[in-house]
Design a protein around this nucleic acid. Structure first.
Lengths: 264, 264
DNA sequence: GGTTATTGTTCAGCAGATTGAACAATGAAT
DNA sequence: ATTCATTGTTCAATCTGCTGAACAATAACC
């Protein structure tokens, strides 16, 4: 939780074409990363290394834009961010298609399916289809998850070049863990990636949550740009069978293929 | 669609404590409002009245912060906004409680329930519980809706002071419509608000979608600040009955009360 | 209550971001 | 091909937003 602090620490040193904007973005990020989600002017000034008077100006401007709000003495993220985030998602054609496909897929339509996107060494969940009301995930849209801890993360990693993976996970690096089954070292992760590349899909066996298994496939990126997306199904280990898994992978792959092709 | 143009038009004239930030926010908003979600540097420069060279600087800084991304020639909202929006929602304790309550409520647990927030003359949907997989709303989290067109919007309006309502909807004002049942004038809206205040809940009869009815209640705002929230249930008119409606209103009110009390 | 350590605000001077005109690079039209 | 229109980039001069020290206003402490 507190380890990603160094990432932001300075970084503002490098001159920006519009420093005020870069700093404002840092403010938003600091608020998002803060455990309580609320920071005072002084907190922000101290943490980001920005003079108080400047911080005050930034906060005033951000507040006027409703990107943040005052709550008594301290500041928190504003509701406009929900709007902007939603605007982003609504433009992502893949999300619309994702819902439609899930609803009419023979096996998937009864499961919990998610579409996620790579964001550095984390994965962000963009949308969730729930075909099985009994099993409900605690995770929400927009949540972040370390790549090494979920099957989607690993499929997305598997699509990167080896030197990128090496840069993110140098040998000997310890990984964050959540259960006894979680991968522990960079070496284990790379071994799994090799398997995923061979199989074309990832399987996760109680690595993030006890009692839960996961299957995931990558969405082939059409063209150069565009985010790398992945699909996953989550199922209870108790009711999971290999045959069912094979069916789900087949449907996931079909959906992934259709998402990859610009024209459905 | 194109009528809200004037709102943003200048507005930047008023001096800001950090103009670059205010302009950057305007850029994000312009991208969110744009039908295609993609605008070029020149588009933005023209629309916002910012010199091209300055716009270029803003875009570079925003891109570096990953609040926007380049897509060939033009720019679009970035995925970081999803993250920030999610961070906002995750701090909203009400959303967590909302899910929990819906799951174990006798009647609501089988329906589609949503929690929404007032944002000017629109309503933003923050979370959606779906107990009935057969009926799936096309609306997504973060979507916006004119207040006058949905029951949640009207309950939230009903909580405002009369002079605020008068300012937003002066007599004679025409309202946006979506079906034959949609309210058409400010007078009709105010009459409904009076009814809602008496009843304590709002009923919507195919005013936004044919074949769909809605019930909504406001969440009492505890203390001075904090957003005004509302809850709604959506049901098919075909299967809707008054008795069922009464049950749902009862449960909605209970949930609203518990959300209103800081300590559950 | 008096002291100390905070907090957020104010303001004048300087560092520096902003600007517009001129530039090159692309694409549309003749 | 040649022109025309438009795009995004470059750069030096200027205007202005940023800064830090001093301020007032709380809050925490003994």
């Amino acid at each position: 939780m507190a380890d990603s602090r160094t990432t932001r620490s300075e970084g503002l040193g490098a001159s920006s074409p519009a420093p005020a904007v870069t700093r404002a973005a840092a403010v938003l990020e600091a608020l998002a990363d803060s455990p309580s989600g609320r920071l005072t002017l002084s907190d922000l000034s101290r943490e980001l290394g920005i003079p108080k008077s400047s911080t005050s100006n930034l906060l005033l401007a951000l507040e006027e834009a409703r990107l943040i709000i005052r709550q008594g003495a301290d500041f928190a993220l504003g509701r406009k961010l929900v709007e902007l985030g939603a605007a982003y998602l609504s433009r992502l054609d893949e999300v619309q298609e994702f819902y439609k496909y899930c609803e009419q897929a023979p096996t998937l339509s009864g499961e919990t399916v998610r579409i996620a996107m790579l964001d550095g060494d984390h994965v962000i969940y963009l949308a969730r289809y729930e075909g099985h009301p009994a099993v409900r995930l605690t995770s929400n849209i927009g949540d972040k998850m370390p790549v090494s801890l979920c099957s989607v993360g690993k499929t997305l990693l598997a699509q990167l070049h080896d030197h990128d993976i090496e840069a993110m996970f140098p040998d000997g690096m310890e990984l964050p863990t959540m259960t006894a089954n979680s991968l522990r070292t960079a070496e284990e992760l790379k071994a799994q990636i090799a398997t995923i590349r061979k199989q074309g899909f990832a399987f996760e066996d109680e690595e993030s949550t006890v009692g839960v298994v996961c299957l995931a496939v990558p969405v082939p990126t059409h063209g150069a740009h565009g985010p790398s997306l992945g699909l996953s199904v989550t199922a209870l280990k108790a009711t999971y069978s290999e045959e069912q898994g094979a069916l789900m992978v087949k449907e996931l792959k079909e959906l992934a293929r259709s998402l990859g092709n610009p024209m459905g």
